[in-house]
Design a protein around this nucleic acid. Structure first.
Lengths: 196, 196
DNA sequence: GTCTATACACCGATAGAC
DNA sequence: GTCTATCGGTGTATAGAC
């Protein structure tokens, strides 16, 4: 059969164009903010006319949705070291998880805005993209469960604590480490509270 | 002298128009999101043509800046009960401050987005508007100082903790109380950590 | 199938008449 | 101070060339 390889080539080509478009979108978003990047600029950056983008994405929201999914998927990869197959003492794991997530989020303010803040008015992630976000939360919950932290309030407190440090860092000291330096102390504070 | 009262009347009239414009902007922002409200809709709501708004505000950003200052000023008023002239035991004060701020922020998601997240790409608050935000932070720092909490790290941890709960509540359970119920516990956790 | 060309309705902002 | 007219820009969509 020759058809399958041909189809694959085509799919690959299409996929690479999609990736190219997304990279252009990220570049522009980092420069002009998330609501600031325009389809015409994205098209210009990849050497197309604006309407041609609609061949690869149904709408501007679809591009943003793909970026959302991509961001959370990469977050999951960045947190691979936190996966349950690496057994650690409780506080060491809490620290590792916190640092992995914190560093990933603060390394790209615009990406964090898309991931964690409802910053694009009409945008609601598709189920497929949202699944990647749920997967990351699942890494936290299953990791905590390893140390018998299973109550929802305990999990909620941990995510709010780390998320608060991320937001404070990005909002008040972007590029610095004023709140990053509070990570370990925050983890200990939390561990004391839940009795770890 | 008759001139002064006339001038005052004029100033009052102008000021009331400004307030009317801001109220319309808030109404639309709550409905369509912060980037969603348009000058044409604001104008229509106050019975003007869009360009006439430029008589009262220099730009769309200027309207947003006024909203920013207004929001933080109202936040300061809502936290009057936390002012240092009301002596309280340390943890009682921490709880009161946390609840006042939390309830104010979560009662209006769009307002919180404007206050605490860099959600409008080109927007940087003017010094005058930003001063109102600094004043609220000052209420926290001076309040904490009452209980000999003066180290910057301790203050930063407190603000990040409360802010994290606010953001988690708004992002994951808007209108609910899933993270609000963690406020008192969080305050105790913090108080334990700083030795109060 | 993929792209170019073009149109639409809307946006923030400005110029100038009254 | 408010208006009309208008500018260059936007996201979106369709028609039609190759």
């Amino acid at each position: 059969m020759l058809e399958i390889p041909n189809r694959d080539r085509k799919r690959e080509r299409r996929e690479s164009v999609r990736v190219e478009i997304l990279e252009a979108a990220w570049t522009l978003a980092r420069d002009h903010g998330l609501p600031g990047f325009t389809l015409r600029e994205v098209a210009r950056l990849v050497g197309m006319q604006a309407p041609s983008l609609y061949t690869h994405f149904d709408s501007r929201h679809a591009i943003i949705d793909a970026m959302f999914g991509q961001a959370w998927r990469e977050c999951g990869l960045a947190m691979e070291a936190v996966a349950p197959e690496h057994p650690l003492p409780a506080r060491a794991w809490l620290r590792l998880a916190a640092h992995s997530y914190f560093d990933f989020c603060t390394s790209d303010p615009v990406r964090n805005q898309l991931m964690n803040q409802r910053s694009v008015p009409g945008f609601v992630p598709t189920a497929e993209s949202y699944a990647h976000a749920v997967a990351v939360l699942e890494m936290f919950t299953s990791g905590l469960a390893t140390y018998s932290v299973t109550r929802r309030e305990d999990i909620d407190l941990y995510t709010a604590l780390i998320g608060g440090l991320v937001d404070a860092q990005l909002a008040n000291d972007p590029g610095g480490d004023r709140w990053r330096r509070l990570l370990d102390r925050s983890v200990d504070m939390y561990a004391d509270n839940v009795g770890l």
